[in-house]
Design a protein around this nucleic acid. Sequence first.
DNA 1: AATCATTATCGTAATATTGCAATATACAAA
DNA 2: TTTGTATATTGCAATATTACGATAATGATT
Lengths: 109, 109
Amino acid sequence: MGATKTDHFTEKQNEIATFAKALGHPARIAIIEYLLKTDSCICGDIVNIIPLAQPTVSQHLKELKNAGLIKGNIEGNSICYCIDDKTWKKFEKTLGSLFIKYDLQKKCC
Amino acid sequence: MGATKTDHFTEKQNEIATFAKALGHPARIAIIEYLLKTDSCICGDIVNIIPLAQPTVSQHLKELKNAGLIKGNIEGNSICYCIDDKTWKKFEKTLGSLFIKYDLQKKCC
DNA sequence: AATCATTATCGTAATATTGCAATATACAAA
DNA sequence: TTTGTATATTGCAATATTACGATAATGATT
């Protein structure tokens, strides 16, 4: 097949998977890291930082945006991409709960 | 094309992306959640929990194992899969640093 | 209006992922 | 040794991802 059977899993499981999948490429990690460490968020700057062609970077930005991890605001002639506060914190919280569960568990192997 | 250009990114970026990618499927999230919430870790139990065919589950287990997130120990006739303590904590730490950076940043949009 | 700069989309090729039936392997028990 | 049980691998089809050149679309500037 090749299509994920999302129907068989909970909404939360699909949600975490969507976020994780969005971060599942080094270029997208690099974009997120850039947005975290700089005040600039102009698309053109991101394209210059990422060692891939402009259409490819645009595509990665789109995926991050679709996952809700970033949002784009028109800034004069260009576009300013930023971490989406709400989704990012939601992701942090959901993932955090996984790690907390681990700390509490007794390991069996 | 179709092949990620890992050479162009840092080792750390590739590492985070690998972990995130491994979690980028609801079935694999379900497997991790199961391992977190139960003492059992027998492969057969996992196969019964996940609503996919046994070979498919086996493949997902393999991917989690390749990413280093889980490990398998032979337990008599079957195999016990567990969270890999070392990698899991490494992942928690690396991801955590991303979220910490966010809390400190000034948002520009 | 014409031009330039910025970003998105299209089209396409290469590769990867998802899923399962069929089969193989490995080990325990009878 | 044969049979059963548990897990992995193979092979294949459908779909998704990655990447980029070419091109379109948008908005600013002249």
